Computed example of a mutant assay.
Amino acid sequence: MIVRIMGEGQVSLADEHFAELNKLDDELLEEMESGDGEGFRRTLGALLDAVRRLGSPLPDDALEPSELILPAPDATLEEVREMLSDDGLIPG
């Protein structure tokens, strides 16, 4: 799957990693619902770090459609809330 981190670029990520990412996504959703700004910031960073660590960066000139778009590391709680689906940032 091709994942875009806003403001950074795209990575190719194997489906086998989505269980780990979904766990972080669930934590992020809980922190957003409870208004835990510090936890939200920490978990968003962990989620994006996991995508960077587990994925393979695509070249900057690659024009692949992104199947999943994640917020920038400095995104606010409100900006991320606007990006959410019923499943959080990551479907499934």
Rank of each mutant, 00 (worst) to 15 (best):
D36T: 07
L24P: 00
P59I: 06
S12T: 06
L70A: 04
S34W: 13
E16W: 00
I90Q: 03
L63W: 15
L68Y: 13
S66H: 11
S34V: 09
D26L: 07
L24F: 08
L44W: 14
A75S: 13
S34T: 11
D61M: 13
F40L: 01
A72S: 08
M83G: 01
R81Y: 04
L70K: 04
M6W: 01
H17W: 14
I69V: 15
L84I: 09
L77C: 05
E16Q: 00
P91L: 12
L89F: 07
A72P: 04
R41V: 09
H17Q: 04
M32F: 06
L84A: 05
E16I: 06
N22P: 00
I69P: 04
D25A: 03
E31S: 06
G37C: 01
D15P: 01
A46G: 05
I2E: 09
S66F: 08
Q10Y: 00
E82A: 02
L48M: 12
M32I: 15
A46D: 12
E67W: 15
L89N: 01
S12L: 08
D74E: 10
L24G: 02
V80Y: 11
L44R: 11
S66V: 07
S12V: 03
P73M: 07
Q10W: 01
P91T: 12
D61C: 12
Q10L: 00
R52V: 10
G92S: 05
L84F: 12
L84N: 04
L29I: 14
L47G: 05
E38P: 04
R52Y: 14
D61A: 11
N22T: 10
G37P: 00
V3G: 02
G45H: 14
A46T: 09
D36W: 14
R42H: 12
E16L: 01
E33Q: 09
E16T: 00
K23W: 08
L28K: 03
F18W: 06
G37H: 03
R4W: 03
P91H: 11
V80N: 02
L63N: 15
E67K: 11
L13H: 01
L58V: 10
D25G: 01
R41E: 10
V51C: 03
L54I: 10
R53I: 14
M32W: 07
R42T: 15
A46C: 04
M32Q: 06
R41C: 02
D49T: 14
R42I: 09
E20Q: 13
V80M: 05
L21W: 09
E82W: 02
L28I: 06
L77K: 06
